[in-house]
Design a protein around this nucleic acid. Structure first.
Length: 307
DNA sequence: CATACGTGGTG
DNA sequence: TCACCAAGTAT
């Protein structure tokens, strides 16, 4: 198709539809963009906003976070989920201080080398923080491309090489235009071309959509579904919740026997929070996993967030 | 390449 | 109610 038409339509749409997100303001810093991308990995914007604001005022630069104990990063990560991201962000800040003089690097390759930064985040930061021309492909962009160009309801379960090639082909040649395109397609996927019930009547490229033209065929595969109840992840999350809310180490026997919520003095935090009755074997597995992942630390007095 | 990894909002 | 889903990464 005529890519120029798509570029122009989405650029115009983005002008008045784009959300006023703080990490898009002119006053933003590359560090602010990097932090936002970490937090947004698998987490909705609405939940990221308050935590991002807190982090920016608490740790305005990479060196500020690097100077804090990793456990503080975990504590102030709150309930964003996937706390290993907080640990990796702390490690990334440290790497920025050690290897880049405290400034977030601007190249895709240098960004990709940071802990917790994969292909998406490296491209996103290079593009949105530094204005580079990068092929940014996230779940929103994948879905928009799958429908608009591919004529499918949803993209494949995993990112394919063909998708990357298609995204690269669609990317405007001009630098600033490419950054805008990346942001606009992502925004379209987040606001209009959504996974569940897309608002096609609001779509600026409805008349160009291959999926619509094909009569909106149903998805050809069944989403896997993420398990939760009774899983190790739930038990790990419950333990991390306890650790975030106490300043003193939690004795291991206490955790093994359904830990006391020391912050509130109430019994059986697991049951109180999750109605959870984890078998001892699963509790052990979760504990060992957290220790192995560096999310928790064992001291003579008990379990705590890492120093 | 499939799987593990948190959490809460929503249709 | 309950399964799906949200700006992925590491192994």
């Amino acid at each position: 198709m005529d890519a120029a038409v798509l570029h122009a339509r989405l650029s115009d749409w983005f002008d008045d539809a784009a959300r006023d997100l703080p990490w898009r303001l002119p006053s933003r810093t590359p560090w602010g963009v990097l932090v936002s991308e970490f937090m947004l990995q698998q987490t909705p914007v609405s939940r990221v906003l308050p935590v991002w604001e807190d982090w920016m005022s608490r740790w305005p630069a990479p060196a500020d976070l690097a100077a804090a104990p990793a456990g503080e990063a975990l504590r102030h990560w709150g309930r964003l989920g996937y706390p290993r991201r907080a640990l990796r962000l702390h490690a990334a800040a440290t790497a920025v201080v050690v290897h880049h003089g405290g400034n977030v690097p601007n190249s895709y390759a240098e960004l990709l080398a940071l802990p917790g930064v994969g292909t998406y985040t490296a491209a996103a930061v290079a593009a949105f923080a530094f204005g580079h021309r990068e092929t940014v492909v996230d779940t929103n962009i994948r879905r928009v491309h799958a429908r608009l160009v591919g004529g499918a309801a949803l993209p494949a379960p995993a990112l394919t090489a063909a998708e990357m090639k298609r995204a690269a082909t669609l990317l405007p040649d001009d630098g600033p235009a490419s950054v805008r395109w990346n942001a606009a397609v992502m925004e379209l996927g987040a606001l209009v071309c959504t996974a569940r019930t897309p608002s096609c009547e609001q779509c600026p490229v409805l008349d160009r959509c291959a999926w619509v033209a094909a009569g909106k065929p149903a998805p050809t595969y069944v989403p896997k579904g993420q398990s939760w109840a009774g899983t190790d992840r739930q038990v790990r999350g419950a333990i991390m919740h306890v650790l975030r809310h106490t300043d003193s180490p939690v004795p291991l026997p206490l955790i093994r026997e359904r830990p006391v919520d020391l912050a509130h003095g109430t019994p059986a935090a697991f049951e109180k929070l999750y109605g959870l009755h984890a078998p001892l074997e699963q509790l052990e597995r979760a504990l060992n996993g957290l220790l192995a992942d560096g999310l928790a630390e064992e001291t003579p007095r008990g379990l705590q967030l890492p120093a």
